[in-house]
Nucleic acid binder design. Structure first.
Lengths: 188, 188
DNA sequence: GCGGTGCATTGATGTAGATCAAGAAGTGAT
DNA sequence: ATCACTTCTTGATCTACATCAATGCACCGC
């Protein structure tokens, strides 16, 4: 297999992403602009000059790309207490779409690159997220990747349709269906 | 295919690695302990309580794991001007072997976790290395991963045997051989 | 010279997961 | 209740790469 359908890989090839959990909730009660987002609402479009950082307070966002066939490919999930923003800087338009998988509330702030690259704890969090992703990508078989995923994100498994998990794992929904069948057979 | 032979993936599943280029050469002429390493010499063994950081000044190191069949699987190359160390901390033994692919000289220093996690530029470098690795891992097909590899590491392509590049790419030497044949046919 | 020893190539065959296609089962709108 | 729409499942076939096995080829010590 290709790890990802070729189309997704091509779409993923240029972008990077900042994604990390909130380090503390010192800001949570400060009176900042809170946005309510309804399920399906798009917060950022690929190709836009994005300057926003989204801090999820409740609900679930996702980032994804769309290939030349119009197919979506999920890059990351961002549940409550996570921060998500495209890594694009200056004049470079972002590569990713961001939308809501559930009705959500999030804090929207202007992107501040100084802050994004100066906070040591935040940088360490970003490293940890990336390392997890590398380790998951290195998990060889689809079944291993899936088992690894439900270990790390047990809640998300319940909250999104299977085809999105398949997309995140880089496999087709059909393949995930067969994997789940196999796992449930093993348990009997 | 599995992205990596299953055995390698299992070996890779727990470890992480700090690897980044030297940010400046301010230290290069300071009288620090310089170690000459001959080709094949092992600097670190999996399972040891490693406390060393290796700064490559000339030559080429690699980090790798060994699976239960005794097969080596290359995790990263570290040519001159790169720093390499296992991410293990405290009482946790490291997961990786490190050895020299060429006669090398390197500076060996005690691992200083405070330093490894406090230098902002260094953290950003680590993020960049990880992002490159993620993007490479996401490149779907073996041929795409190989083309991406020779773009990023043109020198290393010339300096190490093919089977090691195959190992880094997560494919077999046979597959790499066929890929190279195909590419040379395309060019004719 | 000559026989190792390790690496690259080539062929044959096996397998995980993609792709295509056809149901089945759930959900919402009229 | 019925129709449309989506998700999940299941089967058939295809493809990229693994695995196994044989051969070629360089470099080495003798």
């Amino acid at each position: 297999m290709p790890l990802l359908p070729a189309s997704q890989a091509r779409a993923a090839l240029t972008h990077t992403l900042t994604l990390y959990p909130i380090l503390n909730d010192r800001n949570r009660n400060r009176k900042l602009k809170i946005t309510n987002v309804v399920k399906g609402q798009i917060l950022q479009r690929s190709g836009e000059l994005n300057t926003k950082v989204f801090t999820v307070q409740s609900g679930l966002l996702r980032s994804y790309t769309i290939d030349h066939k119009g197919k979506e490919h999920i890059y990351m999930f961002a549940p409550e207490n996570w921060i998500i923003t495209d890594n694009c800087e200056g004049d470079i338009p972002c590569d990713l779409f961001i939308d809501a998988l559930e009705d959500s509330t999030c804090r929207v702030t202007e992107k501040d690159f100084e802050k994004l690259t100066s906070d040591r704890k935040l940088l360490i969090k970003r490293i940890n997220v990336l390392q997890k992703r590398v380790i998951m990508l290195m998990s060889s078989s689809a079944i291993e990747r899936y088992e690894h995923f439900i270990e790390i994100y047990p809640e998300i498994t319940q909250r999104v349709p299977q085809r999105m998990i398949a997309s995140y794992l880089g496999i087709t929904p059909e393949a995930l269906s067969r994997i789940r069948k196999e796992i449930s057979n093993e348990k009997v």
